Amino acid sequence: MGFYIAGAGGLGRETLDVAIACGTAVEAFLDDARAGQTVRGMPVLAPERAPAVASYVIGIADPPARRRLAALLDGRGLRPTTLIHPRAVIAPETTLRLGCLVMANAHVSSSVSIGFHAQVQYNATIGHDALLGDRATVYPGANISGSVTLEEDVTVGSNAVVLQGRTIGRGSFVGAGAVVTRDVPAGTVVVGSPARPLVR
């Protein structure tokens, strides 16, 4: 039994802060790269060492990494758990699927749907009727307006703004401080104000 945080990097440590604020006891971090170490006074185990009856949340920002870890841990019989900081606001008629992480001072408005293993990081805001797909990630200070759709594996960077009714296609990345005024196709990186595809 017990509760584990997958990922012992920066976001994993911030996830531990959320767990502490919630009064949730954490047994250990799960992280292949740091297995055998101690982080914030907590042991770090390889993910394969977590007991099958345990629960977990993933403290890693990268959506593909979250997909891989969730598949591994679910396959071993662990149960994803949603973790919501007590200083976050979750309005009525909003649903969060298992494995979500909502950090301090996030504000999630009414009638929002948030998918499996999605993250709303600190000081981010989600407007009414928004839809966040599985593993969508909203970085600190970002603002998602009402009726926005973030498809699976989308990342919205710090202090970015996505205007009302826009759709961000699967796997896209909205750069820090960008202002999205039109839909973004799948797999696109956009930057600037107004946001435009990044030319490499």
Rank of each mutant, 00 (worst) to 15 (best):
T155R: 10
I84N: 12
I114A: 06
L198N: 10
V26A: 02
L150A: 10
S193L: 05
T155W: 03
D74F: 03
V108D: 00
V53S: 14
A176T: 15
G41F: 08
T149F: 00
V190S: 10
I5D: 04
R182S: 14
P86F: 08
R87F: 11
F173Y: 13
D153P: 02
V180D: 03
D62T: 11
I114Q: 01
I60H: 04
A54T: 03
G187W: 09
Q119V: 14
H85E: 07
I168V: 15
A91C: 15
L83Q: 07
L11H: 15
I84K: 06
R79N: 04
N123M: 13
A124Y: 09
L96P: 13
V174N: 10
V161T: 15
G187R: 04
R34G: 02
T137N: 14
G177K: 12
A61V: 13
E151T: 04
T188A: 06
L83T: 06
Q119T: 14
A33D: 09
G2F: 04
L101C: 12
G75R: 03
T38N: 10
L101T: 06
A118W: 04
N123A: 12
T82D: 07
V180C: 02
D129E: 15
I126A: 00
A142D: 09
V189I: 15
L72S: 08
T125W: 01
G146Q: 12
T167A: 11
A91K: 14
A50T: 06
G192P: 11
A176P: 00
G77V: 04
S113E: 09
A35P: 06
G187T: 13
G10K: 06
T149Y: 00
F173S: 00
V162K: 11
A104I: 07
P86T: 07
F29N: 07
Q164W: 12
C100K: 06
I144M: 05
L69K: 05
G192W: 12
L163A: 04
N159K: 10
A195K: 11
L78F: 04
P43S: 08
V156Y: 06
A136D: 09
I114K: 02
R79I: 05
Q119C: 11
F116H: 14
F173D: 08
G2H: 02
Y4T: 04
P64R: 13
R135H: 09
R49P: 00
G133I: 05
D129I: 03
R66K: 15
Q164M: 10
A28F: 10
A28Y: 09
G75T: 04
V148E: 09
S145G: 13
I90D: 06
L11E: 12
R170K: 15
L78T: 08
H128T: 03
F29A: 07
G169Q: 12
L83Y: 07
V199W: 05
T181Q: 01
A124S: 14
R13A: 10
H85P: 01
P185G: 08
R79V: 09
D62S: 15
P194L: 01
T155D: 07
D153S: 09
I58K: 08
P43W: 09
A54H: 05
A88R: 06
G177H: 03
